[in-house]
Design a protein around this nucleic acid. Sequence first.
DNA 1: GATCGGAATGTCAACGTTGTCAACGGCTCT
DNA 2: AGAGCCGTTGACAACGTTGACATTCCGATC
Lengths: 340, 340
Amino acid sequence: MRRQSPTTTIRDVAQGADVSIKTVSRVVNNEPNVRPETRARVLEVARALQYEPNLAARGLAGRRTLSIGLLYETPHEFSYVKQVLEGAFAAGEAAGYSLLLRPCTAQPSGDDTRRFVRQTRVDGVLLPAPISDCGEVTEALAELNTPFVQISPKTVREGWTSVSPNDRQACYALTEHVLAFGHRRVGFVRGDERHGASANRLAGHLGCLQAHGLADAAQAVAGQFDFESGRRGAHQLLRSAAPPTAIIASNDDMAAGVIVAARELGLDVPRDLSVAGFDDSPAALHTWPPLTTVRQPVGEIAGRATEMLIERLGDEDPEPRHLVLECELVVRASMAAPAS
Amino acid sequence: MRRQSPTTTIRDVAQGADVSIKTVSRVVNNEPNVRPETRARVLEVARALQYEPNLAARGLAGRRTLSIGLLYETPHEFSYVKQVLEGAFAAGEAAGYSLLLRPCTAQPSGDDTRRFVRQTRVDGVLLPAPISDCGEVTEALAELNTPFVQISPKTVREGWTSVSPNDRQACYALTEHVLAFGHRRVGFVRGDERHGASANRLAGHLGCLQAHGLADAAQAVAGQFDFESGRRGAHQLLRSAAPPTAIIASNDDMAAGVIVAARELGLDVPRDLSVAGFDDSPAALHTWPPLTTVRQPVGEIAGRATEMLIERLGDEDPEPRHLVLECELVVRASMAAPAS
DNA sequence: GATCGGAATGTCAACGTTGTCAACGGCTCT
DNA sequence: AGAGCCGTTGACAACGTTGACATTCCGATC
């Protein structure tokens, strides 16, 4: 087996600064009761020797590993996961925590979860959608007494903690924006039902239609958040007797599919059909015309979730909280008044 | 501080199976010299108690941590990173290794790298492009005697190990495909120069033009692999006195930009302008028309790189290798004969 | 000047695993 | 029957850090 190049340990620093290892530990962990000059001397030596605490040893000795797990579903929607990663990494780093990723297949089992926590001893776990609603996972974590925070869960549960975007309100506003153009027949492509966002977006949409006395005009078809289902959904909607003059898709990938479907039917966007998406993903700018959509602060959501998780780690019996962040309408060129 | 729920350790298993902890260790690590019936008994108890070895303790006690690091650049090209992750995760898992991610800003310093390795004690490191060519990083790893494998490096270096796609050959073939349609003025949008792929793709393109006696017709403009630079590049190319009838972009995002630029100039794709991309990313299917492109086996490349890295971990003085995987032309609808 | 108290520092045993080496059996070979 | 060997097993000391607790130091108090 390959030899590791020698590394400086806490002992080397202790020797160099002429103190005990315990004092070095105190300095490195910012604990009180160290004379400022001692602290300075230790830091000096640590820096000179390029000392970095060994995380494995820390995790083994201490009660905590200073690491949090992130279970994410691998197949779809990677731009979402990307933003979650970035937000969580930044927030974690700021607090001295590192992130341990665990890609999962569609339905991670409780055993997978248990194995993950047992092996890694993560202090807590972040659960982005749709895993945030996986009963087996949350059960396993509760059983292991491992704190977790849900990101965009489907249903907000009493004693737990979550951070979500205000999907409902955002989709209400988006629908209102569409109606303001004069559209009266508005199609809607729903998202993957396993994501809580899907139901909320639909609810916001329907709520707005109802508020405008258009409840009967609602036309919603199923979708799974991917390009192809957007394309299929649009064909389905546009085939009807009274086809919509505008279509809202529950995310941008599907909206891109809607645009392609329109083009396949010889319809110009936005002249013959207005289209709106959701998420403000990169795809929203890659379509022609660029998509009117809603910016979800996914990175911020993940960051706040991480902060809340870390906060809860210190508390023996923390207050459950449910944070909701607002979204922002992004107006681009895919929306116009209906051809009268 | 929150209490951890009690976990079963190697000692519990040893007690349950009435053997020493060392024997359990041997069984769990598939070491030889354990009587089959003993092994079976230990495995039985381990399963019953849901025993999972503690990775921190393993890393501390053993010479190896069974984990490998993956430094990746966070800003651009996430679909690439996604595929790298998936390939590497799968290959790592198969060999019992876990992956430790480290998102980096544009130019990670040697110190960052050293800190990462020192803290985590990863056994080896994977370097996807463009970090694979970051001198500070490779230097730091060499200095720490930490094995690494480069993924798609710019330049293949003697004593190191790498896995790359055959960008040059693929772009040669793609250009040949374009010429076969009858195009004679072919524009080219280059990629980010920090990626090795960029130079190779350009070289393949130019090589093919030369082979067909069209070296003088080459028109290549700069790009950075993002949508916007594709759009700018296309405008630049199409503004010229003898504008190209086909444009090859060094990746799909830029090709999407080219298509939008064409539309902005009132050109129909593919009637007035043929377009080809590279990578077969999701974006290639989100454009209209869908893009003719080249499928790079990124996941497989990352997987093979991971396997090679793990293989090298066991060897004291492993043979350096440079593996090159072939790409595949994906013909879609964005390409047609030039309007004569 | 003895006593007290709190801040500063140190000692030592964990933590859960692997590496080293020694011990034990049963077998073959003389 | 004794020597030697090999396959099997175990005892014990690492690994680098933190937690619990002990000790020292120093100034304030009586």
